[in-house]
């Protein structure tokens, strides 16, 4: 047999042909192009994170880099400026802010700082912001006390929302503010203020307002006089009492209690002396008649 003539053979070898056909399988292709690299990356990641020392070094390097960035002068906070606070509050705010200046603005937790400032009783609202030039500015809206509230624990200044602003040592420290007493009296501060405004005509005689059973007000005057106001619409009831007082000098008389709780009519309770006097006068009048 003659040797087979070896001519140039452009055909692929069987191995190459098989490989190429294998490559044309979509599954194989997907595995090679997506699956395999992903598996390699996952394995590498797993190996990296399973080595505790390596992980610690990576953490340290990251922390180091962060520190370097935080130390840059552009990020430094050098001064603190507090606006809108009274001198006493200013000290308190600075104490609460507890800043170690100069600090880096990266280390500063502005949101937490704001929460700390707002949690101060005398602060109604605050906004904290970093301004250019490395100043941390805290703008404060202070609570304005509108009444003095006495409860079991002592005297407190309260604002119009009933929030205690500060403790008060003596009532006479703030004689300009009305006194409210009783359980949950601070919840109804606006109503109390309305009542006090209506009672302006007897300003000099008002001792304070007492909340009864956390539902209605008693207006307490000197000489142990009490005006009992209804639960609903205490304003008109008080107006009626004031009108009676103007017309009849009601409150100048020997009346213990003016009870307005019945919406139909005022009920008066006289003092014991007055009752006896009244009874005496009545018998006199009967005697004259008889």
């Amino acid at each position: 047999m003659l040797p087979m003539k070896q001519r140039h053979n452009p055909a692929p070898s069987r191995l190459k042909y098989r490989l190429e056909r294998l490559w044309l399988r979509p599954g194989v292709r997907f595995m090679a192009l997506r699956g395999l690299p992903m598996a390699v990356i996952a394995c590498a990641g797993l190996l990296l994170f399973s080595d505790a020392e390596l992980r610690a070094r990576i953490d340290a390097a990251v922390a180091d880099m962060r520190d370097q960035i935080a130390a840059r002068p552009e990020l430094a906070v050098r001064s603190l400026k507090v606006t809108g606070a009274s001198p006493r509050l200013l000290l308190r705010v600075k104490q609460v802010a507890d800043l170690d200046l100069p600090a880096s603005s990266l280390d500063l937790d502005v949101a937490a700082l704001r929460v700390r400032v707002v949690n101060l009783p005398a602060v109604e609202d605050a906004d904290v912001r970093l301004t250019t030039g490395g100043t941390l500015e805290i703008g404060i809206v202070e609570r304005i006390p509108v009444a003095v509230w006495r409860n079991e624990e002592g005297l407190f200044l309260v604002d119009r929302h009933g929030q205690a602003v500060a403790r008060l040592n003596q009532r006479t420290d703030r004689p300009d503010l009305p006194l409210i007493v009783g359980e949950a009296a601070n919840d109804m501060v606006p109503e109390a203020l309305t009542i006090m405004r209506l009672a302006e005509g007897i300003d000099d005689r008002v001792r304070g307002l007492q909340r009864v059973g956390a539902r209605r007000w008693d207006l307490v005057l000197d000489r142990n006089q009490v005006i009992r106001l209804p639960e609903t619409e205490p304003g008109p009831a008080l107006n009626r009492v004031m009108a009676l007082h103007q017309a009849e000098d009601l409150l100048e008389r020997d009346v213990r209690v003016v009870d307005m709780r019945d919406g139909e009519r005022p009920v008066l309770r006289l003092s014991i002396d007055a009752v006896e006097e009244l009874r005496r006068l009545r018998t006199e009048m009967q005697g004259e008649d008889a």
């Binding site: 452009p10 055909a11 692929p12 069987r14 042909y17 190429e20 056909r21 044309l24």
Partner: peptide, 9 residues
Amino acid sequence: RNAIQKAQK
């Protein structure tokens, strides 16, 4: 093989 491979390509 050659023809098949060309066509497959």
